[in-house]
């Protein structure tokens, strides 16, 4: 239950502890010549050789695979075949965002009636905290989180992308995160079952040509 930690108060030959420590660093010095990389390098065994060998990798040349679940910056998706956007300007992401950086304007048709289409969509990427609540709130699979790590820009305006800059084809996301995309599709189909029955021409992830 309770256990006393040792104090190592016993006499020890002076310098022995130091030598023991140096033996560890020396072992690592020699073992570092064995080229063993960590699991993040594609095609290699996970954590090879336990705690020995080189663990880092050369960044621009060697890129670590990013897990499917990775939460990067939010992007919007459109359908490859029709080019229709999945976003219906329902404002669910706006309400979910803890920092309030998503701004949507809903489009109106010729009669002035609101239609499920965003006329403008802006995300302030520089303030984004990558929490992923927007993607979780989206009912239509329209907003997902990108896997791009290189987000540095030269000016601040480039970090306030417009809808045109945010849009990516759905196949792009399917390629980078297949399991997450399958989950989103399944989830959206379940949630929108009733709506799809009522509106067979499509809504959200079942796209409708604008």
């Amino acid at each position: 239950m309770t256990m006393r930690v040792p104090r190592h108060d016993k006499f020890q030959f002076p310098g022995l502890g130091l030598l023991k420590g140096l033996s560890v660093t020396l072992t690592h010095f020699f073992r570092s010549y064995r080229r063993q990389r960590n699991w993040r390098v594609p095609g290699e065994e996970p954590f090879p050789g336990g705690i020995y060998g080189i663990f880092t990798h050369q960044y621009p040349e060697e890129r670590a695979p990013i897990p499917d679940r990775y939460r990067g910056l939010p992007i919007l998706l459109y359908d490859d075949a029709t080019g229709a956007e999945f976003c219906t300007a329902c404002q669910a992401c706006v309400r979910a965002c803890p920092v309030g950086i998503i701004h949507i304007e809903q489009a109106t048709n010729d009669e002035g009636k609101r239609i499920p289409y965003a006329s403008s969509y802006t995300i302030e990427w520089d303030v984004c905290i990558n929490c992923g609540f927007c993607a979780a709130a989206c009912n239509f699979g329209a907003l997902v989180l990108d896997h791009n790590l290189e987000t540095a820009r030269y000016d601040r305006e480039a970090l306030h992308p417009t809808k045109k800059q945010l849009l990516r084809p759905a196949s792009y996301f399917e390629k980078i995160a297949p399991t997450v995309w399958a989950e989103i599709r399944e989830d959206a189909a379940k949630r929108l079952a009733g709506t799809i029955k009522r509106r067979p021409d499509g809504v959200g992830i079942v796209p409708k040509k604008q």
């Binding site: 190592h8 020890q12 002076p14 310098g15 022995l16 502890g17 130091l18 023991k20 420590g21 033996s23 560890v24 660093t25 699991w39 996970p46 954590f47 336990g50 705690i51």
Partner: peptide
């Protein structure tokens, strides 16, 4: 991967202790 970490970690802790715990300077 968790099992792999669990298998390696005690080895690492032993090594870490060998490096530090009885080191005269640290003591």
């Amino acid at each position: 991967l968790l099992h792999k970490v669990l298998a390696d970690y005690p080895v690492f802790l032993d090594e870490y202790e060998r490096l530090l715990t009885t080191n005269e300077v640290l003591m």
